[in-house]
Amino acid sequence: MAVKPIGSNGANAHITVKDLTMAFGSFVLMRDLNFAINRGDVFIIMGGSGSGKSTLLRHMIGLIEPAQGNVFYGDQNFTKAEPAQKQELLRRMGVLFQTGGLWSSMTLSENIGMLLEEYTGLNSNEIREAASLKLALVGLKGFEDYYPSQISGGMQKRAGLARAMALDPEVLFFDEPSAGLDPISSRLLDELILELRDSLGATVVVVTHELASIFTIGNNSVFLDPDAKTMTASGDPKELLAHCPDPKVRAFLRRGEKEKS
């Protein structure tokens, strides 16, 4: 049976977040989050430090159970899904963690190979070839047999990206991709994200507060305000810069610089 792509039921919304409340015990971090991400979007989750951006991402990939509300992939409720269905949905997502999250006891090739071994019918030679290809895509050809501790932080991040795209996912999540990268690597990563979106047709969700990235790659976004404890704006970041009624959002997008009247 062919796997039905997520969101193929006519509706264009790929990921829908409905009435999501994030809370730790009795402490509510954010409430009433409602937004939809379309297929092929580069969606930015933005907000100041400590506003719960990464926590929102962790809710969307099922690492934290929401206190209330649901996350839908296409028409499937991910939050309430049975374990088997959840696994099936997770298999179609790739996640790049803030620190790379590479498995330190394995070489880069094994890191990628483990996913291919589990979810594809490739033999060990083919797996190695495929892992090399993924590493080559992020500019790490030749580093197959290095352990994560033997390469630099920026390279770990790129290797993490190679692993995230190992199974050609339909959704790619990036948690602060440019944190700890120099400006040039950071721009190259942005370009890579766009290329991947265009060539794989993947939907991309990025947590970031880097303005340069937000405007270069984002075509849809949500802004989290820790004082209001909810989202205060959503839409194309360039539109928000020009027309958002909330002065806080405009100030954020202008790096706090005064607006020209």
């Binding site: 997502m93 963690f97 498995w103 589990e118």
Partner: peptide
């Protein structure tokens, strides 16, 4: 340490 460096999260999201 694997928890701190998000390796455990990476396992979970990879379906392991």
């Amino acid at each position: 340490t694997m928890k701190v460096t998000q390796e455990v999260d990476a396992l979970t999201t990879a379906g392991f």
